[in-house]
């Protein structure tokens, strides 16, 4: 179970990384980055998981005999989600301007920094 849980994290990360490396479109690249980043969310939640644990919410619940999962990891993954949204927004804004300046979204055609307007 441990191997499967962490293998999913590695798989998500590698899939996102593969997409980023082979990407031919900046929008696609940003999406791949969020895929790779979601591996972090999953990893944080998996580290915080306790076998048969319930959520760290103690309202209106009958006394649950089991343990509670790690609330710090859940708070950290919340941070991760927010930062992921912020990073995606910034990268997409950069992509918009790149497309406007150079007319392309292909990273390979952005070798030169100067806009080539003929």
């Amino acid at each position: 179970m441990t191997v499967l849980a962490f293998a999913v994290v590695v798989w998500l990360f590698v899939v996102g990384l593969y997409g980023m490396v082979t990407s031919r479109n900046l929008i696609h690249l940003v999406v791949c980055l969020s895929v790779a980043q979601s591996a972090t969310d999953l990893l944080l939640l998996e580290i915080g998981y306790v076998g048969h644990g319930h959520a760290p919410v103690f309202v209106d619940l009958p006394k649950h005999p089991g343990p509670t999962v790690d609330s710090i990891m859940q708070a950290l993954s919340l941070t991760d989600v927010v930062l992921g949204a912020a990073v995606s927004a910034l990268l997409l804004a950069l992509s918009v301007q790149v497309h406007k300046r150079t007319g392309t979204l292909d990273p390979d055609e952005l070798r030169t920094v100067e806009p080539n307007r003929s």
Binding site: M1, T2, A5, F6, V9, V10, E46, I47, G48, Y49, V50, G51, H52, G53, P56, P67, T68, V69, D70, S71, I72, M73
Partner: peptide, 19 residues
């Protein structure tokens, strides 16, 4: 990843204290 605790193992003392 090899240094991580087993999946589902009891939470850290810090987490237990916070909870």
């Amino acid at each position: 990843l090899a240094g991580l605790p087993r999946f589902g193992s009891p939470a850290s003392t810090y987490a237990d204290v916070i909870n």
